[in-house]
């Protein structure tokens, strides 16, 4: 019983963390290139509705996920066009994108309220899923859960082990230097923005296709904002984003369990825990100032105009 419950808590944590992780890892790449897109919530919502729409129109779960990434990327393209080509303020444009995405997704989703699609199927990893505790906790999930870990690994590999990643990070350090060396700053940043949008869309679709297979206005309920905070929490490192998502998800799940056991702590106080925990852990992490500075993209949020 104890093993079962522990396994279940871990599994629930991972599921709760997956949409956060997907959106955060996308935003992390965007920010590493020096662009701050605060429109994650809006892109997640548009991804959620696009994925749901395509799935319920017969496109299947896979089609839905592709559609969600495309929709998220399309939203990001709008953001990228405004901020990179027209040099609009990134913070304001991102917030406006969330407003726009909230309205757009509500508009597009009007016909889908009250319907459902089959939940994204679980894939039991042979043998591993049979292990007590570890099996149900880690090896009996849907494809996107495994996918989110693989994407995290791929992003880490790309950023820190490839030339492309080095160039991308250079954009985030100093666009002018990168430009002087001859890299197409705007093109690379635009690609990073698109990736961020696609991942946010995927995170949104995780909610509407896997976590709770339904569409409803504002169903992300603030997860896009948490994902943004997790990028900062992670000090812009992919594995730490995963750690942050799992801590946040874990504390959320744990407080629900504590309530279910009948412990008399006000639920509002328990609901504060994930936010408080994130602050406390970040304080501990960032005490080493130099390491944070090394990871934080120096040019984050700064506009760039190529000069001759």
């Amino acid at each position: 019983m104890f093993l079962d419950t522990t396994g279940a808590i871990i599994a629930a944590t991972i599921i709760a963390a997956t949409p956060l992780l997907l959106a955060a890892i996308g935003e992390l790449v965007t920010e590493k290139s020096g662009v701050l897109n605060l429109g994650v919530e809006g892109m997640m919502l548009v991804g959620a509705v696009a994925g749901f729409a395509v799935d319920s129109a017969g496109g299947g779960a896979f089609g839905g996920l592709i559609a969600a990434m495309l929709a998220g990327a399309a939203m990001a393209a709008l953001f990228g066009f405004l901020t990179l080509f027209l040099l609009t303020n990134q913070v304001a444009t991102g917030l406006a994108l969330t407003m726009f995405g909230t309205g757009l997704s509500a508009l597009a989703g009007q016909g889908f309220v009250g319907t459902t699609v089959p939940r994204l199927g679980k894939i039991d990893i042979p043998l591993l899923s049979q292990i007590p505790l570890l099996g149900p906790a880690f090896f009996s999930h849907d494809a996107l859960v495994y996918g989110s870990v693989l994407i995290t690994a791929a992003v880490w590999y790309f950023l820190y082990r490839t030339r492309g990643g080095l160039i991308l990070r250079a954009m985030g350090e100093s666009a002018d230097v990168a430009h002087a060396i001859g890299y197409p700053v705007i093109g690379i940043r635009f690609a990073a923005v698109l990736f961020g949008g696609a991942m946010a869309g995927l995170g949104g679709a995780y909610l509407s296709l896997a976590y709770t297979p339904l569409w409803a206005e504002n169903m992300t309920a603030g997860r896009g904002w948490v994902a943004l905070a997790l990028v900062v929490f992670a000090t812009w490192r992919p594995w730490r984003a995963m750690l942050g998502a799992y801590i946040f998800g874990g504390v959320t799940i744990a407080q629900l369990h504590v309530q279910g056991m009948g412990v008399s702590i006000p639920p509002q106080l328990l609901s504060m825990l994930p936010y408080a925990a994130t602050i406390v852990v970040l304080v501990i992490i960032s005490r080493d100032a130099t390491r944070v500075k090394l990871n934080a993209p120096a040019a984050l949020g700064k506009p760039f105009l190529p000069t001759a």
Binding site: D4, A12, Y211, A216, A221, L256, Q259, G260, Q268
Partner: peptide, 19 residues
């Protein structure tokens, strides 16, 4: 602490069932 948060509602139901 919400009238409407599908993700959290699902997680709450799961926590209850896990118990």
């Amino acid at each position: 602490n919400s009238w409407y948060d599908p993700g959290k509602e699902a997680a709450a139901a799961q926590a209850l069932m896990d118990q």
